[in-house]
Amino acid sequence: MTPRPRLSPGLLAVLSFLAAVGPFATDMYLASFTEVARDLGAAPSSVQLTLTAFLLGMGTGQLLLGPLSDQVGRRPVLVLALSVFAAASIAMVFSPSIEVFIALRLVQGLSGAAGVVVSRAIAVDLSEGAAAIRAISLIAMFVGLGPLLAPPVGGAILTLGDWRAVLAVLAGIAVAMLVLAAIFVPESLPREARRASGIATALGAFRSLLADRGFLLLMLVFGLAFGAMMSYISASPFVGQTILGMPPLVYSLAFGLSAAAMILANLLNARLAGRVPATRMLLIGASLMLLAGLAFTILWLTGALTIPTFVACAFTLTGGTGLVMSNASALALARAASARGSGSALLGAGQFAMGSIGSPIVGAWGEHTALPMALFVLGCAALAWAGALLAPRQ
Rank of each mutant, 00 (worst) to 15 (best):
V276D: 03
S137Q: 00
E99D: 14
I263A: 02
G387I: 00
V179N: 09
G363Q: 10
G223Q: 07
G61K: 11
I307V: 03
S258L: 03
F184W: 13
A132P: 08
L170D: 02
R194A: 13
V77G: 08
I307E: 01
A374P: 12
L323W: 07
M177K: 08
L216S: 15
S344T: 09
V362K: 07
W365F: 15
Q394W: 07
A261M: 13
S234T: 15
M1R: 10
S89W: 01
P9W: 02
L291W: 09
M92K: 05
C380I: 01
L82H: 01
L346D: 11
A132V: 06
M230G: 01
A150V: 02
I133F: 00
A103L: 14
A25P: 00
R340A: 11
V84A: 15
V221N: 06
V175T: 12
H368C: 00
A196R: 14
T26P: 05
V324S: 03
L383E: 04
L291P: 09
A334G: 15
V79E: 03
R275S: 13
S45I: 12
L216A: 15
S45V: 14
P67M: 13
F17Q: 02
M230R: 02
P247R: 05
L283C: 01
T50E: 02
C380S: 07
A205N: 09
A200Q: 13
L110D: 03
G240K: 04
L305E: 05
S69W: 01
S95Y: 08
A123I: 11
L106K: 12
L64S: 12
M325W: 02
L301Q: 02
F215I: 05
A259E: 13
